[in-house]
Computed example of a mutant assay.
Amino acid sequence: MTSDTDHVPVRRAAVVFVFVTVMIDMLAFGIIIPVFPHLVQHMTGGDISTAVRWTGIMGALFGLMQFVFSPVQGALSDRYGRRPVILASNLALGLDFILMALAQALPVLFIGRVISGIASASISTANAYIADVTPKEKRAAAYGLLGAAFGIGFIIGPALGGFLGGVSVRAPFWVAAGLALTNFLYGLFVLPESLPKERRSARFDIGHANPLGALRMLRRYPQVFALAIVFFLVALAQFSLNSTFVLYADYRYHWGPQEVGYTLALVGVCSAIVQAGLVRRAVPRFGERPVMLAGLLFGICGFLTLGFATNSVVFLLAIPLLALAGLGGPTTQSIITRQVDPTEQGRLQGAISSLSSLATIFGPFVFSQTFAFFIGTSAPVHLPGAAFV
């Protein structure tokens, strides 16, 4: 019999690959963040309030696709393996960025957001991949590394997107397409399968591979369901930033794509430090639950600081607090994965992603409308940071 230690190099190589895959995906998404709202603004006649509303609607559409397809992809990966699902998603993202780069009308951008929402649902499969190849006691650190991949992607992506956006509003989409397609080719030749055939589901059950079936699955595990609610609330709060920051910074501080890109890069640096360095040191010392709760408290302080920031200096001081909020994600994810059988990890991650995607549906719409209302003439008080509060 092969000892568990014989698989350590394979596990490390697999985790490194998923790290690189997520980092490149986030780099591709990060590149378009500083310019996407401005492209929408260009297509809607230049009015900032109209652009905010349409950006929020498209963000909700993106979330709806993730809500529907996260459990589908999770169940498919349980049945057929993680590798084909991840590769298909990477290919779809690359082609979708090309579509958005060529878009000349708002309906084409809508189609692009539909495709990207479907393709990016594969993050649930990446999380299941980590659970497949990582021992239980090391999963918090592994998910912290995955969180660092998000951070690094957002260090380089928005800064590069801001620079490219100064050249052309469409240039970041072309670079994002190149990155996603490169990632597909990298995975095609390098990515090993993490789920052996003997550990796969016997069949693909559409009754479970849908949002309602996935949420019913969560109810079978009370602790998992409770922590999934935490995921939902954190994701909902996060979308106050995702859906308003670019236009908020333009409105309040007169920041253009470059300033936005550099600020998001700073967010990425702080997040990477927390996710890659602090999580693996804090969890062994304090335990997963206290670290998770500390992350939530840091998040509260960070968003309140953003909401009441009267100038850009105070706004920037909130970034380290929001980075420390990242202590909660890897620890919560680690606790959850220990509650279910390996044959259900894909469905579990799909269910969690689907629930979190509800925030992606409602968050962009609610927070963009909140921002638009509180900078409008009918607002009872002028509070541009109301969404963060």
Results as ranks from 00 to 15, higher is better:
residue 161 G to F: 01
residue 212 L to P: 02
residue 163 F to V: 11
residue 201 S to E: 12
residue 209 A to V: 03
residue 213 G to Q: 03
residue 224 V to L: 15
residue 109 L to K: 02
residue 20 V to P: 06
residue 156 I to H: 05
residue 374 F to A: 09
residue 146 L to H: 09
residue 278 L to Y: 11
residue 78 D to R: 04
residue 118 I to F: 14
residue 206 I to G: 03
residue 158 P to A: 05
residue 366 V to Y: 08
residue 21 T to H: 04
residue 138 K to F: 08
residue 87 L to S: 09
residue 189 F to Y: 14
residue 178 G to V: 05
residue 133 V to N: 07
residue 217 M to R: 06
residue 111 I to R: 03
residue 46 G to T: 10
residue 274 V to E: 05
residue 192 P to A: 08
residue 312 S to Y: 10
residue 347 R to K: 11
residue 136 K to F: 09
residue 340 V to Q: 03
residue 333 Q to S: 14
residue 297 L to A: 15
residue 251 Y to C: 00
residue 386 A to T: 08
residue 127 N to R: 13
residue 191 L to F: 13
residue 44 T to F: 01
residue 101 A to T: 00
residue 244 T to V: 15
residue 372 A to N: 10
residue 187 G to L: 03
residue 335 I to K: 10
residue 302 G to Q: 05
residue 167 V to E: 07
residue 95 L to V: 12
residue 136 K to L: 14
residue 49 S to F: 11
residue 134 T to L: 06
residue 180 A to G: 01
residue 332 T to P: 01
residue 207 G to R: 10
residue 102 L to G: 02
residue 363 G to W: 00
residue 357 S to R: 04
residue 23 M to Y: 00
residue 190 V to I: 11
residue 212 L to Y: 09
residue 272 A to C: 05
residue 141 A to N: 09
residue 377 T to N: 13
residue 233 L to M: 15
residue 78 D to Q: 06
residue 96 D to Q: 08
residue 313 V to H: 06
residue 369 Q to S: 12
residue 22 V to P: 02
residue 60 A to Y: 02
residue 192 P to I: 10
residue 192 P to T: 13
residue 256 G to T: 07
residue 37 P to Y: 04
residue 364 P to K: 01
residue 179 L to P: 04
residue 135 P to F: 06
residue 331 T to H: 04
residue 326 G to Y: 05
residue 354 S to C: 03
residue 160 L to D: 04
residue 348 L to P: 01
residue 230 V to W: 07
residue 188 L to Y: 15
residue 301 C to L: 15
residue 362 F to E: 00
residue 11 R to W: 04
residue 199 R to T: 04
residue 134 T to Q: 10
residue 61 L to Y: 02
residue 353 S to E: 08
residue 196 P to R: 10
residue 384 P to A: 14
residue 95 L to K: 10
residue 175 V to E: 02
residue 113 R to T: 01
residue 322 L to Q: 07
residue 198 E to W: 06
residue 89 S to W: 03
residue 8 V to T: 14
residue 3 S to W: 12
residue 153 G to F: 00
residue 244 T to N: 05
residue 258 Q to G: 12
residue 80 Y to L: 14
residue 69 F to E: 03
residue 297 L to N: 08
residue 326 G to N: 14
residue 29 F to I: 13
residue 263 T to I: 11
residue 288 E to N: 09
residue 246 V to S: 09
residue 98 I to T: 06
residue 301 C to G: 13
residue 32 I to N: 06
residue 304 L to F: 15
residue 314 V to S: 09
residue 56 G to I: 02
residue 377 T to F: 03
residue 275 Q to M: 01
residue 96 D to T: 15
residue 245 F to M: 13
residue 235 A to T: 15
residue 275 Q to H: 10
residue 280 R to C: 11
residue 105 A to N: 11
residue 250 D to K: 09
residue 103 A to D: 07
residue 53 R to S: 14
residue 96 D to P: 10
residue 347 R to E: 14
residue 166 G to H: 07
residue 231 F to T: 13
residue 367 F to C: 04
residue 332 T to C: 13
residue 265 A to C: 08
residue 151 G to K: 00
residue 117 G to I: 01
residue 268 G to H: 03
residue 220 R to E: 12
